[in-house]
Nucleic acid binder design. Structure first.
Length: 504
DNA sequence: ATGGGTCCT
DNA sequence: AGGACCC
């Protein structure tokens, strides 16, 4: 990073910036999954309502915790050691200067800079956010002490505001945003910054001359819906005004599991089968581990491919990389995934090859650049649970899962409360746990179990190699780095410290 | 332009 | 099955 290497940078320019850069082929997410799970469980000690987004981002709804603290001043004072003179822990967002922007269409936009810094809300959220910010500080402090990760956090009254607040002061800091500041803060952002306005929507909006959130507000709800569809359109209509009624959704077990690999090209069936069996191998390790823990097995198998030709066509249409994938899926009889089945690999590879030939007819040439094997529709498997694949048993599974994990159901009364402006909730995001350089993560490829073993030894990556396949700058290889902070656990906080604060 | 995921159409 | 979104 210090040398100018950035995430998702082309290899060519990364090597220009840093010639001694070492690039490794492939990846093994195992250690990151484990780290993420550790953080997830850590966070659940503070509140059961934790939503995970990707591996390193979490939302916590601490509404109830904050209410408890408010009701117990003695306990409250114990986390207020984190408060500063203004009652908030570290950064309180104070607004920023807004510049007037002239866009392609000549629309001039933006609101004047705010002059007042007082909380304009009388609902008591000011106080609740003070407590929330102390709670966030406490959680981040403990996270570092116990697990060794630094994190940034945003604290506000909606998920969106919390998420965006977390980006204001970035490495290892936190920012609290009062609701009164949210609309102006949003106004000056590019629309793409709004969570929910992705690549596709941002392009459609750009075609209308809309680049900034302030301009988005000029569009009627009807217009937005016709442009972006019912769901995203109506959501964005509210989000751009700072209105976010989404709830923190504690997720249960994963619904799908997949392994994928991209490569410069594969054009023969033998190679494809080798790659597929490698992917399957990694996937089965995961389904086995899950079966041991939860006793369920998948009943759906999916293969997806990306063909270079098709991908290029799509790419021309959309100027987007993720086009050009196609998939076939099939129900799989219960129990095929059972670790005890000695013919399991055979059966599954055979099924996958059948899917492959549905995707790529035998008489056609192909040039694949990606393969993905996925499983889904996990169902409890006790051996005698019959052959249910219907929707009924699916929902039965979901219900069991929820009660077993003691997860918080989606409470409708909470949703009702969130529909007004004066939110009771404090939502917090602990973002970007900087797991990339944690000592427990593998330092080189040789420690990873899921290597590209199917490649000829000569071509396989060695530690000294800079690039595994192709010359520097060849397509298909990119640099991905994350903010890296080497964090070492110091003296552990005792369980009682936590209980003191949270078992009220 | 990775290697995962979620949910909606 | 594909397409949007998220990291």
């Amino acid at each position: 990073r210090a040398r100018g290497v950035r995430k998702l940078q082309r290899l060519k320019s990364a090597f220009e910036a840093c010639p001694e850069l070492v690039i490794r082929n492939g990846s093994d997410l195992k250690h990151y999954r484990a780290a993420s799970e550790g953080i997830f469980h850590f966070l659940k000690r503070f509140t059961p309502c934790v939503e995970r987004l990707g591996l390193d981002e979490f939302f916590l709804d601490v509404t109830e915790k904050v209410a408890e603290f408010l009701g117990k001043p003695v306990t409250l004072s114990s986390i207020e050691c984190y408060a500063e003179a203004d009652g908030f822990a570290t950064h309180l967002y104070k607004g920023r200067k807004l510049t007037l922007v002239e866009t392609q269409t000549g629309v001039k936009s933006h609101v004047p800079a705010r002059t007042s810094t007082v909380d304009q809300c009388n609902c008591g959220c000011h106080r609740r956010l003070q407590i929330g910010s102390c709670l966030a500080k406490k959680i981040r402090t403990d996270l570092f002490k116990e697990l060794g990760y630094t994190a940034s956090a945003g604290i506000s009254v909606t998920k969106m505001a919390a998420k965006l607040s977390g980006e204001v002061h970035k490495p290892n800091q936190q920012t609290t945003m009062l609701p009164a500041y949210v609309p102006d803060f949003l106004a000056a952002l590019r629309v793409r910054k709004i969570p929910g306005c992705g690549y596709s929507s941002a392009r459609k909006l750009q075609a209308e001359g809309v680049e900034y959130v302030s301009q988005l507000r000029a569009l009627s709800q009807k217009k937005l819906i016709s442009l972006l569809g019912e769901l995203i359109g109506s959501r964005l209509y509210l989000l751009c005004r700072g209105e976010d009624n989404s709830i923190v959704k504690p997720r249960g077990k994963e619904k799908t599991m997949s392994e994928e690999d991209s490569f410069l090209g594969s054009d023969n069936v033998v190679d494809v089968e080798l790659r597929i069996s490698q992917l399957l191998k990694g996937l089965l390790e995961r389904t086995d581990a899950r079966f041991e823990r939860h006793g369920d097995l998948p009943s759906l198998l999916r293969l997806t491919v990306r063909d270079r030709v098709a991908a290029k066509k799509k790419g021309e249409q959309k100027n987007g990389y993720f086009g050009g994938r196609s998939s076939k899926q099939t129900a799989i009889p219960m129990g095929v995934f059972h670790p005890g089945d000695p013919k399991r690999d055979e059966k599954l590879i055979s099924a996958l090859m059948q899917l492959f030939f549905k995707l790529v007819p035998r008489n056609l040439c192909f040039h694949l650049t990606l393969l993905n094997v996925a499983v889904a529709r996990f169902q409890p498997f006790g051996g005698a649970s019959g052959n249910q694949t219907g929707i009924d048993s699916f929902f039965h599974t979901a219900a069991n899962t929820s009660s077993r994990n003691n997860e918080k159901p989606l409470i409708s009364s909470k949703r009702d409360r969130l529909e007004s402006h004066n939110f009771f909730s404090v939502k917090m995001k602990v973002a970007k746990a900087e797991v990339a350089s944690h000592p427990s993560l593998p330092r080189n490829k040789s420690e990873a179990t899921h290597t590209n073993n199917y490649e000829p030894t000569k071509k396989r990556n060695r530690n000294k190699d800079r690039v595994a396949e192709g010359p520097a700058g060849s397509p298909g290889i990119i640099v991905t780095t994350d903010d890296a902070k080497v964090a070492r656990p110091s003296s552990a906080v005792t369980a009682e410290d936590i209980d003191d604060l949270f078992n009220l």
